[in-house]
Design a protein around this nucleic acid. Structure first.
Length: 568
RNA sequence: CGGAGUGUAGCGCAGUCUGGUAGCGCACCUGGUUUGGGACCAGGGGGUCGAAGGUUCGAGUCCUUUCACUCCGACCA
């Protein structure tokens, strides 16, 4: 491709809304263009090329693993979402609309329902299973706050795959195969990543793993172990049960007047104990379908923090919101002095598992200004893991030290089970002619987000540094001064020779000066460049590696074979 | 949805306080010079100042309403 014919509107200035390197360089390098609406982008020729290359890596590896590509309608009937029960649950992120006949539709944010619908219509026998179908298509989610360019757009390109099995064991086999396949994909794209345990979120199902591209700018906090390969999203991370060296308060079971102490810090000071021996009671309102809600008290140790996603899952709610003191009082609770015991009937109580059987605990007395000491946590509570792992906690797997790091969620794989096949009636007949729901897995990769992730990991202060398999072109050739006949002639010759050798070349034949062209090269970030310039009079050209901007002088006569060797 | 801010040429911004010919830089077009780190000179094109209403002889500027976007938070496969 000749640069003079390519639409690459590079800019010197940074768009005022861009803060992340990937956002800045993708816009400045003329890869993408903001549509003006938030979270919507056009892909310009260069961006489209990168997208296609990334997409083909994904496709190749999936096809190798035995997956089959399909393409599902982007517009999906609302009735399918009602069947699965997600029409309500998915909330405002679903963009709903009606056609001229007043039928309701949804722009697909994910396609479990659609794929299950496809399969239930065409697969009836165990002989047709297993099956792994995927597509690489647009998705639309009406995000509350899109940001960071391609990182969190409203419209985005996603690879979504769905597998169908006769039993759990076969689904797990496929799940493991997909984990390996995803590792190959991210490795080929040149990404440093970590596979972590994750929360299953709105998709539902049991085990799930996320593929986190490590980057400080990542939106997710992940917990990793210094001692082993354990890694988990903060929303799903677990730890070894915490011990406390400080002595337990040896106090009778009695009511104590604590007028000014309602926070954990104040209480710890008042009783002179470690917060480990305090019961923290956090009140939240759990929201359910059809506007139903309930106040829930979460009881945990004073030394722990509530992990909201875990808490939300523990009560199977759509979401948790804060409750005002007035609401609490109206429900018969005493803010600041609540206990998980003797609560009003309509209030639900969840107790952290590490509190089960705990003795000598101090907690609220359900009376303003009073706490009780010497409590033992026992009885019929719903015990769940609802606490957040903190840095420095011990790894449940090896005892090593856990710490936080940031990641970009680039892929997520789920063991779904029958979460969708059952409500949607996606069944098969087994060897005995008995109908059973198919066991499913689902596997996603944020393809357009990967572009942003690659740049987050591979850039310098000057611009992008694309990896070998993601680069828009394999090589950039610059003719420093196109009025110099010798330079131009060599450029043309090398360009044609390398093109016909199967190398995808961007040939910069523009009239601009050296500096301007160099800036563009650095911004666009093609892995290698050949610069034909002044030294041609000595029979020399330069071979540049974008990473580190390493320049090597090469004889002009040998440049074609030199490049071929270096690029293979 | 809470808090803060911004809407003026394709992009980045000034002008708004104190009403009086709509400006600057980049980009773009023409001609010339220039060609190893975002060149220079000369000329040129491009705007319902987010929208609606109001005050005024006169509104980018003042008043009212409204819409959109951005940032922080909440939220989020």
């Amino acid at each position: 491709m000749r640069f003079s014919r390519l639409l690459v509107p590079t800019t010197k200035e940074t768009p005022n809304d861009a803060t992340l390197a990937s956002h800045i360089f993708l816009i400045r390098g003329g890869f993408i263009q903001s549509v003006g609406g938030s979270g919507l982008y056009n892909f310009l020729p260069l961006g489209k090329k990168v997208l296609d290359r990334v997409r083909s890596v994904v496709k190749e590896e999936l096809d190798n693993a035995g997956c089959q590509e399909v393409s599902l309608s982007f517009v999906t009937p609302a009735s399918l979402w009602e069947e699965s029960g997600r029409y309500e649950k998915y909330g405002k992120e679903l963009l709903r609309f009606k056609d001229r006949k007043d039928n309701e539709f949804v722009l697909g944010p994910t396609h479990e329902e659609m794929m299950v619908n496809l399969v239930r219509q065409s697969v009836k026998s165990y002989k047709q299973l297993p099956l792994n179908l995927y597509q690489i298509n647009l998705k639309f989610r009406d995000e509350i706050r899109p940001r960071f360019g391609l990182m969190r757009g409203r419209e985005f390109l996603m690879k979504d795959g769905y597998s169908f099995h006769t039993d759990e064991a076969d689904m797990k086999r496929e799940f493991d195969l997909m984990e390996e396949t995803y590792k190959k994909i991210f490795t080929r794209l040149g990404l440093e990543f970590r596979v972590v345990e994750a929360d299953s979120g709105a998709i539902g199902g049991s085990g799930s793993k996320e593929f986190m591209v490590l980057a400080d700018s990542g939106e997710d906090t992940i917990v990793v172990c210094d001692g082993c390969d354990y890694g988990a999203n903060i929303e799903a991370a677990v730890r070894q049960e915490k011990q406390c060296d400080a002595p337990a308060p040896q106090l009778e079971n009695e009511k104590v007047h604590t007028p000014d102490a309602s926070t954990m810090e104040e209480l710890a000071l008042f009783f002179n104990v470690d917060p480990f021996y305090l019961v923290k009671t956090v009140a939240m309102r759990a929201l359910y379908d059809e506007g139903k809600s309930q106040i829930v008290l979460f009881a945990l140790r004073g030394s722990d923090e509530l992990q909201e996603v875990k808490a939300c899952n523990a009560v199977d709610a759509n979401e948790l919101v804060e409750v005002s003191e007035e609401e609490l009082e109206a429900a018969g609770l005493v803010p600041g002095f609540m206990a998980p015991f003797d609560t009003p009937k309509e209030v639900r109580v969840i107790v952290d598992t590490t509190l089960k059987g705990a003795t000598n605990m101090i907690c609220g007395a359900n009376e303003k200004g009073y706490h009780t000491t010497g409590n033992t946590i026992e009885g019929d509570f719903a015990y769940r893991d609802i606490v957040s792992v903190q840095e420095g906690d011990a790894c449940a797997k090896c005892g090593g030290t856990l710490r936080y790091t940031k990641g970009i969620e680039a892929g997520h794989i789920f063991q779904l089970g029958t979460r969708y096949s059952e409500p949607l009636g996606c069944t098969f007949l087994d060897e005995n002619g008995k109908a059973k729901p198919m066991v499913m897995g689902t596997y996603g990769i944020g393809v357009s987000r990967l572009l942003a992730a690659i740049i987050e990991q591979h850039h310098d202060e000057k611009g992008c540094i694309w990896t070998k398999e993601s680069a828009p072109f394999d090589l950039y050739i610059m003719v420093s001064n196109i009025k110099d006949k010798a330079q131009l002639a060599l450029g043309e010759e090398v360009y044609i020779a390398l093109q016909s050798a199967g190398i995808d070349v961007l040939f910069d034949d523009r009239k601009d000066r050296f500096g301007a062209k160099m800036k563009d090269y650095e911004l666009i970030g093609i892995p290698h460049a050949v610069i034909i310039g002044k030294k041609l009079s000595d029979g020399l050209v330069e071979f540049v590696t974008r990473e580190g901007m390493v320049k090597e002088e090469v004889s002009a006569e040998e440049i074609v074979s030199f490049v071929q060797e270096r690029l293979c």
